[in-house]
C-alpha cells in the first residue's frame, strides 16, 4: 500500500485518551489522527488543557494509568506498535527511537547526580558504552548544546535556568533518537536563550535527520521552526496543514482567533487585540457538536449538532468546520499568496 511505502516516523490513528478519576471522567484526547514523516518538524499548538501533553506522552506510553485510559486504532513509532510493546521493548524504545523533553525542565533533572552522569546513564543503557566512553560522549553532548565540556562534573543547581534546559536537551539527544518530542521546551526561557535552543533543534534536524514534535502555544516559534502545524482544541485536531497553509491560508475560526489574540511586534499599535471570547470547554463534558461552537463568531445552529467532518483544502490542508459546507463561506482573516 502507498502509505506503507512512505517513511513514517509516527503513525497515529483515532487516538483517544481519558482520565477516570473518582468524581469525573476527563476526555483529554478525542480521536486524533496524524502521521509524521521523517526529518519533519510538526508543531502541536493549542491552549491550556487542549490535550497536547497527553497526546505526546502516549507516544512513549507514559500516560499515567490509572487514571489514564488510552485507546487507538494505530499508535506506531518508527513502524512499531507502541500499544503492543512489552516493558522491555518500551524501555529500549525510549531514549533510542523517541526521546522527550518535558514541559518542566528543572523537575526532570536529578539534583544529586552530576549532569555528566545523567547524560551518560542513557548512553550506557542504550549503546552499551562503558562509563569512561559514556562520560566522553556526555562532554560532546554538552558542547553540542553550547555548554563547555569541562562542566560534566557539575550538579544541576550550578547552572542557570537556560543552561539547565539545554542539559535536559543534551540528555534527550544523547542517543541520537529518531524522534524528538519537545513539550514547550522554551516557555521558561528568555527570548535570547530561546533563540539558542530553537537554533539547536533546527541543527539536529539537518545533521541527524531527527523528526520532531514541538508542543507550543507560541505561533512565532512555530513560524520559525516547524514544517507542519496541527492545531488542537479540546482534544481534537481542528486544523492541520503545512506551515504555509496554516499561516497564509488559515481556515478554521479557532486558528484565526489565535492569530487575532496575538500581539505582533511591528503591527498596528492603534488596533486593539481581538481575543477569542469565553473560555475553553469543560473536558468532563461530551459535546454533541463542534467543541468551539459556543465561542465561535461564525457559529450557526448546525454547528452544535454533530462534530464537523474533516474537509480537505490544499495538498495537506485539513479543516474541521461545518461552515465550509457553504461554498461561499470564508473567515475574515485574509489569505496571503
Amino acid at each position: 500500500m502507498a502509505e506503507e511505502m512512505k517513511d513514517l516516523a509516527l503513525e497515529v490513528k483515532n487516538l483517544n485518551i481519558r482520565f477516570e478519576t473518582d468524581d469525573e471522567t476527563v476526555y483529554a484526547v478525542n480521536g486524533i489522527s496524524f502521521d509524521l514523516e521523517k526529518q519533519k518538524t510538526m508543531a502541536l499548538v493549542g491552549e491550556t488543557g487542549a490535550g497536547k501533553t497527553t497526546t505526546v506522552l502516549s507516544l512513549l506510553k507514559l500516560v499515567q494509568s490509572p487514571p489514564g485510559v488510552v485507546n487507538a486504532d494505530t499508535l506506531k513509532v518508527v513502524g512499531n506498535d507502541v500499544m503492543k510493546m512489552t516493558a522491555t521493548e518500551l524501555e529500549a524504545m525510549r531514549g533510542k527511537d523517541i526521546a522527550m523533553i518535558f514541559q518542566d525542565p528543572m523537575s526532570s533533572l536529578n539534583p544529586v547526580m552530576t549532569v555528566g552522569e545523567q547524560i551518560a546513564e542513557s548512553v550506557m543503557l542504550h549503546e552499551g558504552l562503558d562509563e569512561k566512553a559514556a562520560m566522553e560522549h556526555a562532554k560532546e553532548m554538552l558542547a553540542l548544546v553550547g555548554i563547555s565540556g569541562d562542566r560534566v562534573n557539575d550538579y544541576p543547581h550550578q547552572f542557570s535556568g537556560g543552561m539547565k534546559q539545554r542539559v535536559v536537551i543534551a540528555i534527550a539527544l544523547a542517543c541520537r533518537p529518531s524522534i524528538l518530542i519537545a513539550d514547550e521546551p522554551t516557555t521558561a526561557l528568555d527570548v535570547t536563550i530561546q533563540a539558542q535552543v530553537l537554533e539547536l533543534i533546527k541543527k539536529l534536524k539537518d545533521e541527524y535527520k531527527t523528526s520532531t514534535i514541538l508542543v507550543t502555544h507560541d505561533l512565532g516559534i512555530v513560524a520559525e521552526t516547524c514544517d507542519i502545524v496541527a492545531v488542537m482544541y479540546a482534544g481534537k485536531i481542528i486544523e492541520y496543514g503545512s506551515l504555509e497553509e496554516i499561516f497564509n491560508h488559515t481556515k478554521h475560526p479557532y486558528t484565526e482567533g489565535l492569530f487575532n489574540s496575538l500581539p505582533v511586534m511591528g503591527g498596528d499599535r492603534s488596533q486593539k487585540l481581538k481575543p477569542i471570547k469565553g473560555l475553553t470547554p469543560d473536558p468532563s463534558k461530551i459535546y454533541p457538536g463542534c467543541t468551539f461552537a459556543e465561542r465561535c463568531p461564525y457559529a450557526t445552529e448546525k454547528c452544535t449538532q454533530g462534530f464537523p467532518e474533516y474537509k480537505k483544502f490544499g495538498a495537506t490542508h485539513i479543516v474541521a468546520c461545518s461552515r465550509y459546507d457553504e461554498p461561499d463561506f470564508h473567515i475574515e482573516r485574509k489569505e496571503i499568496d
Binding site: L198, D218, L243, V264
Partner: peptide
C-alpha cells in the same frame, strides 16, 4: 533582544543576532 523575538508571520525573519553566553 528585539531580533530574538519570534514573529508569527511567514517570511518576516530578520537577521537574528545570537548573543553569546548568558
Amino acid at each position: 533582544l528585539l531580533s530574538a523575538i519570534p514573529i508569527p508571520v511567514l517570511g518576516a525573519k530578520k537577521d537574528r543576532i545570537v548573543m553569546r553566553g548568558e
